[in-house]
Design a protein around this nucleic acid. Sequence first.
DNA 1: TTGTAGGCGTTATCAT
DNA 2: ATGATAACGCCTACAA
Lengths: 352, 352
Amino acid sequence: MPAQPSAPGSRPTLEAVAARAGVSRATASRVVNGGEGVRAHVVDKVRVAIRELGYVPNQAARTLVTRRTGAVAVIIAEPEVRIFSDPFFSRQVRGISKELTAHDTQLVLLLVEDRGDYDRIERYLAGGHVDGALAFSLHTDDPLPAITRRIGMPTVYGGRPGWTGGPGEPGGVSYVDADNRGGAREAVRHLLERGRRRIAHIAGPLDQTSATDRLDGYRDVLRESDPALIAEGDFTSAGGARAMAELLERAPGLDAVFAANDLMATGALRVLRERGLGVPGDVSLVGFDDTEQVAEAADPPLTTVRQDIEGMGRLMAGLLLRTLARGRTATAGGAPPESVITPTTLVRRASS
Amino acid sequence: MPAQPSAPGSRPTLEAVAARAGVSRATASRVVNGGEGVRAHVVDKVRVAIRELGYVPNQAARTLVTRRTGAVAVIIAEPEVRIFSDPFFSRQVRGISKELTAHDTQLVLLLVEDRGDYDRIERYLAGGHVDGALAFSLHTDDPLPAITRRIGMPTVYGGRPGWTGGPGEPGGVSYVDADNRGGAREAVRHLLERGRRRIAHIAGPLDQTSATDRLDGYRDVLRESDPALIAEGDFTSAGGARAMAELLERAPGLDAVFAANDLMATGALRVLRERGLGVPGDVSLVGFDDTEQVAEAADPPLTTVRQDIEGMGRLMAGLLLRTLARGRTATAGGAPPESVITPTTLVRRASS
DNA sequence: TTGTAGGCGTTATCAT
DNA sequence: ATGATAACGCCTACAA
């Protein structure tokens, strides 16, 4: 609380602080940035002046000389409907926000509405508004990776990007992902242990690695699974319902379903109930994500593969911040890509 | 796509563009900013140079002189659990994002985790990172309004702030709110028309005007309502369930419930079903918000008071942008507060 | 330990 | 219509 609030529109500068404290701009600046190598007495004088004037450093001026903004972009390119219905996104953003805040870094949210927005995004990233970027839920043909590479913007992805080239590829990529394949295997094995034999899978959109990895895990365990037991959804509840209806038509004898996320599982649940099939009596059901408000609130509550979504958000931010910090000392842009796979655990509830 | 991508770490400046085009920096700058008063021939030359170099203006430098950042802060100060479970927030953010994007303005998301974060928020706002702020879901004792007023930051609130001082107050405040009171009246009248007589109300947290306004609307219609028919919730599903249980204990004879939002209505629904009470057979239920994925997905689907959440977000952003634009021409900080109340409509579904 | 001075990349005010 | 040139507010060698 400044004792003497600045006049609206024109805020006090370092110059004013220096004058009031009776020192030079340089010394005032040193105090603002930690006060190393300044006599304690002088530090105090300057601090008092800062408080009295209500001085806050001008970020633009600072960025201009340091070339760092202290801000990071979070890019979400997902159709409206999913962002609204799936708690996954807000959860991950929250994790990111926590980590960034702890390191005094701001979060700039970039929502991609349609394909044309990428021009705007590129201009923004290239304009030096942010030091790095975080992006998630990319589809295989997403133009973003090409953009960030072209302008040399340090970026960490949430979820393994689909185009991570072979080992020969020049620029590797940093990402944080859950052990989708392992988690899927665990889910299917669990269903086998429950004595189920006709286990179906509702996959996510197959242009996302989270969907294909889970499908791969399913296939790992069910080597010779009947293709009729696999249907593709879109990670939404409605899509899960459609896929479930399809499966019941193609394979009426199924006795279990592994859905690639919780939202699709709730859609499947609805269809099963409508058809008079009991869960888990007639059909066992397992989801993926363990987003509360979905998995726990379902009736019956869902057995599901839990991934630490918020933790993954924190990891993404941490990875990026470390990359940026390194960039300051080491050669610019030369940080080697680094990725993390987080473990998943099966949470048993009533649906299986 | 720049034909000649800039070296990593150092991007081309206006100086470079000017040199390549054979003009002065001043002329290059004019072209970048619209090209008024520059011969067409020269404009072309400069444009070519810009493209060839992949030039993008440096925002920090620009901000330093223009004193405008082209960014707006969105401040969300709500406990984790609500942000995750209530689609309200993401919806409003989406509306805001659309409007800002349409005006080439960036959205900086500020999530408030705990009370101590307000220092950080104040420093951020005062640091000139953004031109204005958008905030919603304030509680009566929220420190934010004092902060924005102190540092003279143009701000538009989502939802009428609780402390809007009397007409004597110096600085009025801009906000966008739904007609909560009117919507509540309509909901209760609807229940009366359905022949209900013992109509209970599950209120939201009474330190928020959206909750008190809806309660007031309820009371407007039910002049002498039994106090036992009113319980306070917290806008969450669990809170709605608790309140419902409380009401059934205090007033077992109730035949209708008006919940202050859809999420609480779903909680109430669960409890009613557990107690063997049919909806709408035994008890009619009406919610508020009409967030799909909640109201439509409920079983039975909820009759509810719809408010155009995304539209409200757009309005908030629009109001702020207009204020900022005006500020540039008129006297700084002198824009009179302006507010908007948006209409609500009753959506009839199966729950009443 | 402190001060002096140059420059970060733009825009804006003057001349020309 | 165009070009010098002076800010904008800050950081950081370098000098003292």
